[in-house]
Amino acid sequence: MSWRNFLLVALLVAAAGMVLPRVLENPYYFFAGYVVLQYVVIATGWNILGGYAGYTNFGTSAFFGAGVYTAAFLIKAFEAPLLVQVLAAAGIGMLLGLVTGYLTLRIQGVYFAIATVALVVVLETVVHNSDYLGGASGLTTIAPPAPAWFAGPTQYVFCVMLVLALVAVGIARAIEHSWVGRSLRAIRASEPAAEACGVPTLRMKLAACAISGGVIAMAGAPYPYYASHVDPLSAFSLTIGLNALAMPLIGGTRSWIGPVLGAVLLASVQQITTVTISSEFNILAVGLMLIAFVVLAPEGILGLVAELRERVGRRRATT
């Protein structure tokens, strides 16, 4: 897909999203759709570091939670508008990524993964013990009314998340198609070889970590508006960390479309099972799907598609 086509599709999707609240009456669809889009942002952000550069982040919920609480703080302290919340959350997420990266990415391998888990615990504890942020019981965040165009706050925040999803995917795609993406792929394949080719690996990893953290935190920013209440348990939920890595792995980590596919698929299934079966069933479903993909299709849906294409091509060539 060329940039022109990509932008065209993105604009069409955005336009469709803006019109949808006028066509679709039931706010539940927007309530559920918000979560799906939120996961598109999270999975896309995760993949910039976890997929392109090959550094697994188990602590996605630390970045997400940081975004949630940055927004909640800004609402409580300044009644800041949503756009400011989103930008501030992205900034905090980048900073957090930079600091975590600087402390751990100098060492290759598993240390980063371990540190990301620790980060969740640290941040959650901080919030737990902060009276200003509501401690364990959380904080009620009264959202300002939605702009008149939208039927209600849910429809509005759905559209905001849709724009964030398009921005996130645009960032991921731009990285993938640039020299930055190429350097990250080189790092994923072999860090010593990348260094020997002149790639400043530490700097590139830090950049990836910061951008990834910024995008994930951005996904958390509209949450206080969406839920009207934030608490540490849901902001730093392990489900987010699990989904963040399951979705790109299931979709495919090599290209921006992989995390999008994985997120839409997995999050939709979760939204349906939450209504029809139970929310506990979600984790089990994700776990089973993840195992199935790791065993049967380690390159995710994208890998399956590529393999299928190749087979069809070969069959055509022989007949």
Binding site: R185, A186, A189, A196, R254
Partner: peptide
């Protein structure tokens, strides 16, 4: 060059 080749896979 590396004794054990380290190609950039995925490219």
């Amino acid at each position: 060059s590396f004794q054990i080749p380290r190609p950039f896979t995925g490219m």
